[in-house]
Structure formats: C-alpha cells, structure tokens
C-alpha cells in the first residue's frame, strides 16, 4: 500500500513537472494529451478484449458518455468557488477531478448495465451488441437540443437544479458542445495513464486477474472450476468503461468541442486496432501501439512535409495494418510485457 501511494505521488509530481515544462507549446501539449487519451482507452479496452478474452467494439460509446457527463459537471461547477480562498488553478483542477470522477462513474455504471445482460452472449454477438449500444448513444445525443445562451441565462437564475436539467437535455446535437472549460493539462492526462496501467497490473496480479485470464483461456473450464464467469466479465467491463469515461472527460476538457460523431463506431474500431497491433493481452503493447499509431499521421506529415500526402495517409494506414498483421500476427508484443523483460533473463526456462 505504501509503495503504491509513494509511486502515485512520484508519478503525479513527474507529470506536474512535465506539464509545467511543456505548457507553452500548444502543439506538443495537444499531441501528448491526445496520445495519453489513446493510451488510457487502449489499456482499458485491453482489459476486456485482451485479458478477459471478450470482444467489445463499443468503447467509443463509453468514452462519449464520460465526455458528455464530464462536461455537464464541469460547466455546472465552474461557476462556483469550490474552495474559498484557494487560487483559481487549484479550484479548476478540483472541478476537473470531480468531472473526471462523474464522467468515469457514469460510463462505468453504463458499462455495468450494458454488460449485465449482454455478457451472457458470446464472442461476435457481444461485439455487435456493444457496437449497437455505442450507436444508440450517438443517436440519443443527436436528438437533444442546442444550448442557447439567452435561455441558459434564464435557467441559471432558477438555480442549479434547473440548470442541470437544462444542460442534460441540451447536449448540442450534431453541432456538439463547445465552450468547454479547458481544464485538462497534459500532466493530468499522463497521471491517469499511470493510474490505468497500475490498476491493470494490480488486477492481473490478483486472484481476480487470474479468474479473468482463466475466462480468456477457456470459459467452460473456468466455470467448471467455480469461477463466476458472468460476474467477473461484468466487473471487468465496468472497470474498463470507467476508464473509458475518464478518458472521454479528459479529452473533452482539452478539445474545445465534442460532437457525437467523435465517439462513433470508427473511434471504437481505432481502439481495437491499437490493442491488436500492440498484442492482445499485453498492457505495454497497448501503450506503445496507441502512442505510435496516434502519432503516425503526424509523423507522416513530418516526413512528407514537402509533398501533399494528405490524401494518401488513410489508405496507407490501412495497408500498413494489413502488413503488420501478416508479418507479426501476435501484435508487437504478443502477450509479453515490457516490465517482464528483466525477469525472464534471470530465469531461463
């Protein structure tokens, strides 16, 4: 416990330092935050797809839930001085933390509710249900209304309850929610990257993790051994959705605008691609490939700065995926982890 706390503190400090150092470069901070969000998404999805052996392609939907709930929370709270006397930065970060927590919890609850009935389904059927769920969320948001600033003022005068009701029914449909308080710093994103990696490692090392692995290897056998397969699957689903929600809330607070189209089926597929390219079941694989693939478009921009490669980026990306899979079907890392590298050398099999 002490070790975990101290590592957390050190990581937090390192992230704060880094974010102070790089705060002045908009582009760098933006890329680093985007990469961090991708990593959180990949690592959390890996918990479902890689470690538990289920197949979800609705992670984008959970991210969307987190983003929207987080934004509603922070828009409500920024009007208040939460800590009287504290500097604005501290109060802002507190608001952000609350927003992240509500966003994550909302997504986690949603994951639980979706998971409960649908995790009785197997394989591809589960996949299509998660996909359908993501699409339903998108359509639901599209059917809300847009915020009108004069209406908002009237509602704000009626108190916080009325404003909450107004904001929940006015999620900006296709236009999206804009004028989001820009509270996320790149350090905060990377702090959460650290948290999600730690949590996954801890889960894996625990009896809980063994149960998940058992479900992946052979569900029938696991059940025969007395593992409550549905229960474990639903919990894994809820934890992963929680982190997807946090990622969404982080994303929303450095993006200036969120639209339903950002959290659609394409987004979910992107995350699946991250973890498969990295090696299903490998957390470090998910981290590295999420980083590399998120930056790939920018790298291609850098490499071909002179030419106009904009239009061939996407088809090239598709071909690259095929080539990666053909040459290294187990993904970059297989099921290995970076932190196991040292151990294996000491213990030759």
């Amino acid at each position: 416990m002490l070790r975990t706390t101290s590592t957390l503190v050190v990581a937090g400090a390192a992230c704060a330092l880094a974010s102070w150092l790089f705060a002045s470069s908009q582009f760098f901070a933006l890329q680093a935050s985007l990469v961090g969000v991708a990593v959180i998404l990949a690592v959390s999805l890996n918990l479902i797809n890689g470690i538990t052996g289920q197949f979800s392609i609705g992670h984008g939907g959970f991210m969307g839930v987190g983003a929207y709930v987080g934004v509603v929370t922070s828009s409500l709270l920024t009007q208040f001085q939460l800590l009287p006397g504290a500097p604005q930065v501290v109060s802002d970060q507190l608001v952000l933390l609350i927003a992240l927590a509500t966003g994550g919890l909302a997504a986690g609850t949603m994951g639980f509710l979706v998971g409960l009935p649908s995790l009785r389904l197997k394989g591809d059927y589960l996949a299509i249900v998660t996909l359908g769920f993501g699409e339903i969320i998108r359509v639901a948001i599209q059917n809300t209304k847009e915020i009108a600033s004069d209406e908002l003022k009237l509602v704000q005068a009626q108190g916080i309850g009325a404003e909450l009701a107004y904001r929940v029914t006015h999620l900006g449909r296709a236009t999206g929610l804009s004028q989001i308080p820009q509270l996320t710093s790149f350090g905060m994103v990377w702090f959460w990257v650290f948290v999600v990696v730690m949590v996954t490692r801890r889960i894996l090392g625990s009896p809980h993790g063994r149960a998940l692995l058992a479900i992946r290897e052979d569900e029938v056998a696991a059940e025969a051994m007395g593992v409550d397969t549905t229960g474990y699957k639903v919990r894994a689903f809820a934890v992963a959705s929680f982190f997807a929600g946090v990622a969404g809330a982080l994303f929303a607070h450095f993006q200036a605008i969120i639209t339903p189209a950002q959290f659609d089926f394409v987004k979910s597929t992107e995350i699946v691609v991250f973890i498969v390219a990295g090696g299903l079941g490998s957390t470090s694989g998910a981290v590295v490939s999420a980083m590399a693939l998120t930056l790939l478009p920018e790298v291609m921009r850098s490499l071909f700065g002179g030419f106009n490669v904009e239009q061939i980026r996407k088809p090239l990306f598709g071909l690259l995926l095929v080539v990666i899979m053909l040459t290294r079907p187990q993904g970059l890392f297989g099921t290995h982890e970076l932190w196991d590298l040292g151990k294996r050398k000491k213990r030759p099999a």
């Binding site: 797809n49 197949f55 597929t269 699946v272 691609v273 498969v276 390219a277 299903l280 239009q311 061939i312 996407k314 088809p315 990306f317 598709g318 071909l319 690259l320 995926l321 095929v322 899979m325 053909l326 079907p329 187990q330 993904g331």
Partner: peptide
Amino acid sequence: PLREKPRLTALITAIGISFTLSYGFQL
C-alpha cells in the same frame, strides 16, 4: 495466411482492407 492465428488478427486485416478500399477510392 492468418487462418490458424487468433481470429482477431484476421479481423484487423479486414479493417485494414476496408480502410484501403474506402479511402483508396477517394484518391
């Protein structure tokens, strides 16, 4: 080439082919 590999790998190549075709035709 991926038939004996985990099913997800072939799924990713399928997504790759889909990207290549749908975006390639936009050139």
